[in-house]
Design a protein around this nucleic acid. Sequence first.
DNA 1: AGCAACAATTTGAACGATCAAATCATCGCG
DNA 2: CGCGATGATTTGATCGTTCAAATTGTTGCT
Lengths: 350, 350
Amino acid sequence: MGNDRPTITTVAERANVSRQTVSNVLNAPHRVQADTRERVQAAITELGYRPSRAARQLRTHRSNLLAMRMSPFSEELAGSVLDRFVHAVTESAQGYGFRTIVFTANSDDDEIAAYSDLLNSYELDAFVLTGTHHRDRRTTWLRKQGVPFVTFGRPWGVRARHWWVDVDGKAGTTAATERLLDAGHRRIGFVGWPIGSGVGDDRRAGWETTLRAAGVDPASLLTSTENTVDNGHVSAVELVRERKADALVCASDTLALGALAMVRDQVSRGGPAVPVIGFDDSPSAAAMGLTTVAQPLRAAAATCVDLLTNFLDRSDDNDTADPADTVDAVDNLAEHHVLLAPHLVVRQSG
Amino acid sequence: MGNDRPTITTVAERANVSRQTVSNVLNAPHRVQADTRERVQAAITELGYRPSRAARQLRTHRSNLLAMRMSPFSEELAGSVLDRFVHAVTESAQGYGFRTIVFTANSDDDEIAAYSDLLNSYELDAFVLTGTHHRDRRTTWLRKQGVPFVTFGRPWGVRARHWWVDVDGKAGTTAATERLLDAGHRRIGFVGWPIGSGVGDDRRAGWETTLRAAGVDPASLLTSTENTVDNGHVSAVELVRERKADALVCASDTLALGALAMVRDQVSRGGPAVPVIGFDDSPSAAAMGLTTVAQPLRAAAATCVDLLTNFLDRSDDNDTADPADTVDAVDNLAEHHVLLAPHLVVRQSG
DNA sequence: AGCAACAATTTGAACGATCAAATCATCGCG
DNA sequence: CGCGATGATTTGATCGTTCAAATTGTTGCT
């Protein structure tokens, strides 16, 4: 049968040139004369030739593949943020000729095992990590291996020895609080998470400093609970009924949905309307008309991919480039820490 | 530096055998004597050897890769069902030694272009499709190429000439309706989608036949609107206030959330409690305490992967196996049409 | 003893690309 | 006119694996 897939040699014969010239047209077009280049291009499209990634990878040790752990199969509301992030990364990566492999893991150690497999067997070019936390074994492991990677999320507490992209949670709650102040509210409560998580403390800080700057004492206007809808409801009851809060900023949409339910219930009984602002712009927020702080996920993903592909392209020419070295070059590192501003999505609730 | 990755030859030397024997230990262990097999295994673990997928793929034309389009970057509630499905497929595939590549596409033609690239460049072994619809170009294209694939979702209307796995929506709404009948309700309304979509008609049918069987005329108890929360609210107002429905079954959680808001509002004003049942078990449903019909996504994903990997393994031995042929063998096809039963998740709303 | 049948293992070639070095052509210039 | 420099293209080797055929070793049977 003549319907075998065309190889680089097929194309070469068709265009009356050698293998290598075809290869050059693809990888270093400037090295080949304009007219032959066109002839080769014609042959390529005519035959529908696509280079074999496997063969290329075998020789170059570059897979043009990027891997990412999918958010755990949970019923959590928060899951959708990461799912959307995976989507955005995939989309951005495609623009650079990279494809994305996803995988699941049940623990950080599982995840490291997966990295090891992907690295050795599939020769992945880079990784994108999410949900980093204090003393993360994954980042130290990856650093030791010298693999390029970016995390979506700052490493709280320690000075980062790796690249990251994150969203400025403090700026988000600041914007939310300011909006409520502008609307004339003073006793703005915060429905927060337990003290001690980097993200939660950051989001709380935005509310707290803004309120202080406006001359309001935040002390009595704070609750701290685990991230469930019911807790949001309970906190709202306490803040509004007992502590007389006249508006609420929440650390998450999950909490905010609970708070919103309480507030709407109160309204339908003829009580006062207390605005509620959430955080994350989850699908549920849209569904329930919840005003919320939206993370610029597309931009975050694009930045991650940008950092990685730029680095990979550079290390093609300049073979001294070792990601570990590069990360150690501290003056260079600041450019690889990107903090993006979120924005408010205004809906009925606030 | 001696820290190059070990190759099959490294292992062979270490174990005092030839390349091919190592290869056999990995791919056809029965051909190798027990003691040498152990010796080779020892060398493998000792050196931490992992076969190069690229090299293997170059020779065998098998990538052990499976591809899937991610649900569009939308704010839709429904998105999360597909996201969870992607996750479940990835998880199942890992169990069979397959990794998953995800990609995005803006249209079916884009998706076909992606398939073409993935097939030619990456030599993907199989595809999983979601969101199939009437006259789907993608399935006919894939069939013509002779690539193994499964769709999650039946091809409505036509007799399927390809493998599919789906969830029995009719059974889901039947269960929901029966539950409400058992609780003593009679005038059970259905908040549905516009007539004409396969999935929507199927879900409506479950409610309709069950209601008829119970001796209730469904005619005045139906609304049909696009899938938004607001439409759910509006429909609920109409069905409950004007047409005196005393319970509601909805075609989706999105609609149900709107209906639920209406009902809860009514309750807090002292009105009667009207139970609401949704469909899909989205994260929002859990958050809002919505009773809903849950699709067995893990099982569906597992079945998809099962069908594909079984076929791929078979076609390794038996090289006459051409997916197109196999699909054409009609008596065989029925086994490759799998309909799974959903189940009710009971929460506060019903 | 001789030889077929079979099991276990090894050897050469191939998959499809890129790298590194070699070849060929063209041109400028003393 | 010859020779080095430069640019365009080609050739041989190689990446790490599996396939197909060849080799070696063992056993059973006449």
